[in-house]
Amino acid sequence: MAKLNLEPNIASPDDFYEALIDMHRDLDEGASAKANAKLVLLLANHIGDLEVLREAMAIARGRA
């Protein structure tokens, strides 16, 4: 049973995407990788539900 919301859920996707790319501005590869890692950890904690997180991981890895 899919619990991960894959329907559009972000009110202004363009603003989100811009903010995401902005987050990495002037960061070298290492710093960017770390920022991404922190972002994943922060969001994962916000979501909390391991089942949802596993579903997202499977899609991200290309298994679904």
Binding site: G30, A33, K34, A37, K38, V40, L41, L42, N45
Partner: peptide, 19 residues
């Protein structure tokens, strides 16, 4: 990549209880 996540957890831990 696991090193990057490990260090990210440690950096966040100083300020955030969840980490």
């Amino acid at each position: 990549v696991s090193r990057v996540f490990r260090d990210a957890v440690l950096e966040l831990a100083e300020s955030y209880p969840f980490a």
